[in-house]
């Protein structure tokens, strides 16, 4: 019981990334990057395809090993307890070969603090309350992404990592997901998301991190970034030009 209380009260932001480098298949993906994610903020990571946005999220989540540097969560190095307070929504949702409700129940078995009624409340929020017994893998793209987000929220995370959560979604799914992200942020969850949708970044993010070729080129407030980007690369990116 004491342990559960401790985990629940655990604060994992601000997140500091110091001189971080990662390699995948011998290719340097993140090259000595440093920045800070503020507590209870929504931070959008922007950058062209192949810039290293997804790898950055995966490194924060502990899926990709750190080659050099460190990531600290409220001054603590990552641990199993800290990782259990994070939830990640992948660009391509990975759903278990089970029904919609059973996908949520799987999380309930891991996270003993939640139960079936929490799962049903979240499914209602994401508009999947009529799909309890529907095979999860037969949902449409938007429904899969909404289920994936509901499953992540069931973990009651302190840090929510969203890898292009609304790519190719219809306006209904997009609005539902954005509303949930904002609601979660108001509750005090720190959120980091990657997106190519500039309008979405403007709507949601308080801070922007712009990366290109594995390097952080800008970290600033969203309104400052969109009004007056500092680097030539960011200006080109916002203008829709190819970054070489």
């Amino acid at each position: 019981m004491c342990n559960i209380k401790f985990i629940d009260e655990l604060k994992i932001s601000p997140i500091e990334i110091v001189n971080l480098s990662t390699k995948i298949n011998n290719n340097l993906i993140l090259d000595n990057i440093s920045f800070e994610i503020l507590d209870k903020s929504i931070t959008a990571i922007l950058g062209p395809n192949g810039a290293g946005k997804s790898v950055l999220l995966q490194t924060i989540n502990g899926l990709v090993p750190i080659l050099k540097g460190k990531i600290t969560f409220n001054s603590e190095e990552t641990s199993e307890v800290i990782r259990k307070k994070q939830a990640m929504v992948f660009q391509t949702p990975t759903l278990l070969r089970r029904s919609v409700l059973d996908n949520m129940e799987f999380i309930n078995k891991i996270n003993k603090e939640t139960n079936i009624s929490d799962a049903k409340i979240l499914l209602k929020k994401v508009g999947l309350d009529d799909f309890y017994n529907h095979p999860a893998r037969l949902l449409s793209g938007g429904e899969k992404q909404r289920l994936s987000l509901a499953r992540a929220l069931l973990l009651k995370p302190k840090l929510l990592l969203l890898d292009e959560p609304t790519t190719n979604l219809d306006p209904y799914s997009l609005k539902l997901i954005e509303d949930l992200i904002l609601e979660e942020s108001i509750k005090g969850t720190s959120i980091i998301l990657t997106t190519h949708d500039m309008a979405q970044a403007k709507r949601l993010a308080s801070n922007i991190i712009f990366i290109n070729k594995g390097k952080v080129l800008e970290q600033t407030e969203a309104k400052v970034f969109f009004r007056k980007p500092v680097t030539n690369e960011a200006r080109k990116y916002l203008a829709g030009e190819i970054l070489l």
């Binding site: 259990k84 939830a87 990640m88 992948f90 990975t94 278990l96």
Partner: peptide, 13 residues
């Protein structure tokens, strides 16, 4: 199935 679930399970610790 393991390849499919690998990242999800790792993320869920």
């Amino acid at each position: 199935i393991q390849l499919e679930y690998k990242n999800l399970f790792k993320s869920l610790v």
